[in-house]
Design a protein around this nucleic acid. Sequence first.
DNA 1: AAATCGGGGTA
DNA 2: TACCCAGATTT
Length: 362
Amino acid sequence: MHPLLENFSPEQFQQDLVGWYRDQKRDLPWRRSADPYHIWISEIMLQQTKVDTVIPYYYRFLEAFPTIEALAQAEEDQVMKQWEGLGYYSRARNLHQAVKEVAEEYGGIVPSGKKEFRSLKGVGPYTAGAVLSIAFDKPEPAVDGNVMRVFSRLLCLYEDIGKQSTKSTFEAVLGEILPLTSPSDFNQAVMELGALICTPTSPGCLLCPVQEHCKARAAGVQEELPVKEKKKAPRKQEMAAAIIWNGRGEILIHQRPDKGLLARLWEFPNTAVEKEAERAEEMGAYLEAEASVTPEIERPVQRVEQTFSHLIWNVHVYEGKAERTGLPEGWKWVPLDDIANYALPVAHQKIYKTLVERMELK
DNA sequence: AAATCGGGGTA
DNA sequence: TACCCAGATTT
């Protein structure tokens, strides 16, 4: 028995928690399916993403790609378009690659072995535990942010939950508490408790089904937990972007590189700028260097802010024109309406939307 | 171990 | 603002 579990009664805890879960759980789309493919999609989408955000994406994605085979055969551009706006786009590319592997190596059947499933792209310790327990009822712990918050409080543990060593501690603890009978309900119950009752601020201890098991509650320190080191503020970056028209009424767009931020998404040409007074000039120099396009930047039209985890873009959008020249790989002239077929970052969706509205007024 | 990778909702 | 979210991968 793990030393942190002294005086902890796993059997009573399981009963209190799972009993509450079976009575109070939310009716979520992926809880209506037993298909491992559906469970898998939901778990990837739910990484660092709220349930309410995921729900519409979950429906649309499965409508577009109802089966392993459908997703395996899809073009990456289609997959990215379905993921547009959900963020962390490597999730979509990794999922696509993993599903292709399942189609080819496992006959289209999601592998239920820990080693096999964990080896798939984009499947880490949490997702492996979640899918294996929920879809296959395997007794595997699934430790996410909810679980660490809940157990920090239950065990009154002041270790920084941002540290790997702390996560390992929780995985060991959960491995001992996890019931063999219904690990699916147990894992989901802990996360549901974290989402509905044991919330980051103002936890609802009075409504908590396991309040009698909680050391933080007993000590009145539930609001102090979990301990988590503050991360530094994102840095700001001034950007210029350009809507460049050619003589045929087409617009210049660009595909971002294979790696890094917003990888492989499409965008209006843009670049980081240094001097406020020379934004338009710097934009022109960028287009000349990268696309051999010599634009005439005519006027500023919009400003767009985009916040990332570690970065804030302040994008100054210009409009201009250029001759319709041949373009390097990754650049395209496209009609206005066609831009809607490409997956764009949210900042560029905003630019596109404003542009369309402006054209409709004319 | 630390940095990177989105976007939106909430206090 | 700052924080958080059913984290994984790269450096």
